[in-house]
Amino acid sequence: MAKYVIKRLLGIIPTMFIIITLSFFIVRVAPGGPFDGEKVLPEVVKRNIEAKYHMDEPLLKQYGRYILGILEGDLGPSYKYKDHDVNYFIGNSLPNSMILGTIAMCLAVLFGVTFGILAAVNQNSWVDYLSMGLAVIGISIPLFVICPVLQLVFAMKLHWLPTSGWFKSGDSWATVVLPSVALSFSYFANIARLMRSSMLETLRSDYIRTAKAKGMKRSTIIFKHAMKGALLPIVSYLGPAFAGIITGSVVVEQVFRVPGLGKFFVQSSFNRDYTLIVGVVLVYSMILVAMNFIVDVVYSFLDPRISYQ
C-alpha cells in the first residue's frame, strides 16, 4: 500500500507538468491578449508594459521563466490587476470556496445517501416518490433560480438568515448556510439517485439472497451486507464532484457575494489574464488529481477485491 501511494504521488508530477504546459501555450494561442482593450494603447506604452511582464521575450523563454516560478511556488503576476499576483488571488479566494464547497458536499452526501437508501428500501412507496421528486427538482432547477428563491424565502420573508455576505468579511456565521444549501442541491440530487439505483441493484444480488436465507433482519442486511457494495459508485462520483464543488461556483458566489475562486474562472478568461487562467487551471487539476487519488484509496478500503501494489 505505501509503495502504491508513493508511486501514485510521483505520478502526479508529470500529469501536472503536462497540464501546465498545455494550458500555458493554449491560452496564448487564443486570439487577443491581456492588453488589447477597447482603448488602443500608444505603441510605446504597450511596449513598456510588455517589457515589464517579459512578454517581449521569446515564448519558450517565458515558459521557462514561468516553470521556474512555479517550482518556487510563485504563479506569477496578474496581467490585469497590477498590484497583485496570482498567488494573492488564489490564496485569498480558494479557502472560501473550499469551506463553502466542503459544507455543501457534506450536506449533499448526508442527505443524498440517506434519501437514496430510504427510496431504495421503500421502493415505489411515497418515500421513494418524495425523495426522487426532490432529486428531479434538484437536478432540473438551475442555480440562478434556486439562489434567489432561497434568499426570498429564508432571508427576506422569514428573516432567519442573512441575504448575502461572508463571515470572513465580517458578516455573521449564518451567511454560510444559504450558499451551501444552494450549492449542495444538484449534488444531493445526483447522489440520491445514484444511491437509490446502486442500492436496488445490490439488494437484487445473489449474496443478499444468501443473507436473507440465513434469516437476517432487513436492516442488518442493508447495513452489514449491502452498504459497502452500494457505496462504491457514490465514491467514484464523489472524486470529480468534490473537485468541482470546492473550486467554486460562479453563480452562488455572485448571488451570495462570497469571495470565492469561482469568479476567477470566468473573469480571467475574459481578461486574457494568462497567468491567472493557468493558475486557476493548475489549482483545479491539482484538486482533481488529489481527489481521484483519495477515491482510489477509499475504494481499496471498501472493496477487498482491489489490492494495490
Binding site: 444480488s205 445473489d206 449474496y207 439472497r209 444468501t210 477487498p304
Partner: peptide, 10 residues
C-alpha cells in the same frame, strides 16, 4: 451459484 452467493465484501 457459489461464485456470487457469498458476500465479496465480508
Amino acid at each position: 451459484d457459489p461464485m456470487t452467493s457469498l458476500n465479496p465484501f465480508l
